[in-house]
């Protein structure tokens, strides 16, 4: 049983997953850039939540829970409502669909993003595989 999302334990478990997953290592071998995910609060999530991943060449160097996305000048900032991010983890929302229909907002270099859509998709796959239970 994986730790419940959202929690620091879930984030650490995801960290381990990214560093042990062979498929992710292969697909993300050229990826260079850190990512912040900002989850906007709602009735299920009382406070704004900011998660951070430092991703480099198919591995994850560091994860952190931040006070604000402005703490680190990360390459990409992805913002979502908590509900939509939950749907993403539950495989009820496709990640590309989420971006194309404004359910995920993305800030960062769009050339890098478009060249690396498979990396984004595999990152989400890994997140889903470490998610059994959602708050």
């Amino acid at each position: 049983m994986n730790p419940k999302f959202p929690s620091e334990e879930w984030l650490n478990n995801f960290h381990n997953k990214l560093n042990s997953d062979e498929q992710y290592a292969k697909i993300a071998k050229n990826w260079e850039g850190d990512i912040c995910v900002v989850l906007e609060p709602n009735h299920r999530l009382k406070e704004r939540l900011v998660y951070y991943w430092d991703l480099w060449h198919g591995k994850c160097k560091r994860v952190a829970v931040l006070e604000s996305e402005e703490e680190i000048d990360s390459a990409f900032v992805i913002t979502s409502t908590y509900d939509n991010f939950s749907l993403l983890l539950e495989e009820k929302l496709d990640p590309i669909q989420a971006m194309l229909t404004r359910k995920l907002k993305v800030k960062g270099n769009l050339a890098i993003l478009m060249r690396n859509v498979p990396v984004v998709l595999d990152f989400v796959r890994c997140a889903r595989e470490v998610t059994d239970e959602i708050l």
Binding site: M99, K105, L110, L113, M114
Partner: peptide, 15 residues
């Protein structure tokens, strides 16, 4: 809109 920003930065060949 993200689709617009992608089209602006990368053109129709963004896809």
């Amino acid at each position: 809109d993200l689709v617009t920003q992608v089209a602006h930065d990368l053109g129709t060949a963004s896809v």
